[in-house]
């Protein structure tokens, strides 16, 4: 069994009013574990306690009850942050700094030597595709660009655990794809990723395990594939069949006691179509498509 990176036991967070009376129970007796090397997704509608949980992990909020161990340390232990990268929900960065200065600043906070800072800075700026804007102040950045530099600052220390709060929010599909690829790459490098999102497709694409929160309580926890598997059905994908062949297949299925519930031509996702179009447009700038025509896969 692989080692736990995060252990949460009976975590509760109650927000109180000025007089100390309970106002909102944002998280209620939450217990879960995140294993080393997995991508763990926290899902839930707005106000379900995802961000509150992440902020308690990082020591930005104090639990009302319960226990947190993160990389074997208490949440309030500053030294744990040496191995953590955090991307907040909004990229709360210093808007008067440019990309270079931002990464330089956060690199210094990790006591990194100058040569390493420069190396990491160049690599990350290239990775998030901001070479062209590295000298522009962040206040001039679009939301997507701000998310990118936010992501870069979260990775400046080459962390073991990356906590991403809504990592693809505000990004275009291309950026979203890149971030998802990056998350998968981080897992391949042996890092643990915890992300919260309400964009279910993103979570489904990258997460190994998920927890679904509702009203501050853990409702579902488990492996994504197992949770989504439709246990009473089998899906076959074949090359295009004509109606007579389809009728024969249906007869065979009937003979084995199964029924054909639906048959249709599989469709690509809109994301795939969009990405293909962009790639094709980059490769052939002058190319236009007739109505109904799409770039080839």
């Amino acid at each position: 069994m692989s080692e736990s990176v995060i252990e949460i036991r009976n975590l509760t967070k109650i927000y109180r009013d000025f007089w100390g009376r309970a106002k909102v129970k944002a998280v209620n007796s939450l217990s879960l574990e995140v294993k080393k090397g997995e991508i763990f997704g926290l899902l839930g509608p707005n106000g379900s306690g995802k961000t509150t949980t992440l902020k308690m992990l990082l020591g930005l909020l104090f639990p009302t009850e319960g226990e947190i161990k993160i990389l074997g340390k208490q949440a309030h232990d500053v030294s744990k942050n040496e191995k953590i990268g955090y991307l907040p929900e909004e990229s709360y960065l210093y808007r008067f700094l440019n990309a270079d200065e931002t990464l330089e600043f956060y690199g210094r906070l990790f006591n990194m030597p100058a040569s390493l800072r420069k190396e990491r800075r160049d690599k990350l700026i290239e990775m998030v595709g901001l070479q062209h804007a590295r000298k522009r102040q962040l206040k001039e950045y679009s939301k997507g660009m701000t998310r990118r530099i936010g992501l870069a600052q979260a990775l400046i220390n080459d962390p073991e655990l990356v906590i991403l709060d809504e990592p693809t929010s505000g990004m275009d599909p291309l950026g979203t794809r890149e971030v998802k690829d990056l998350i998968l790459k981080l897992r391949d490098q042996g890092k643990t990723v915890v992300m919260s999102s309400h964009l279910l497709a993103d979570v489904q694409d990258v997460c190994d395990r998920i927890a679904i929160l509702y009203g501050g309580e853990l409702k579902v926890l488990g492996d994504v594939k197992e949770l989504l598997e439709s246990k009473g059905e089998t899906q076959l994908v074949t090359s295009k069949l004509d109606p007579s062949a389809l009728a024969e297949v249906e007869a065979v299925l009937k003979k084995h006691g199964a029924a054909l519930r639906s048959s249709s031509s599989p469709t690509a996702s809109l994301e795939e179509l969009f990405l293909r179009t962009v790639e094709e447009s980059k490769a052939r700038p002058g190319r236009r498509y007739a109505p109904g025509e799409t770039p080839k896969a």
Partner: peptide
């Protein structure tokens, strides 16, 4: 207020 301090204190900064 701008929460820029959040990205600082989530680094190993006392």
């Amino acid at each position: 207020r701008d929460r820029s301090l959040h990205t600082v204190v989530t680094k190993p900064v006392r």
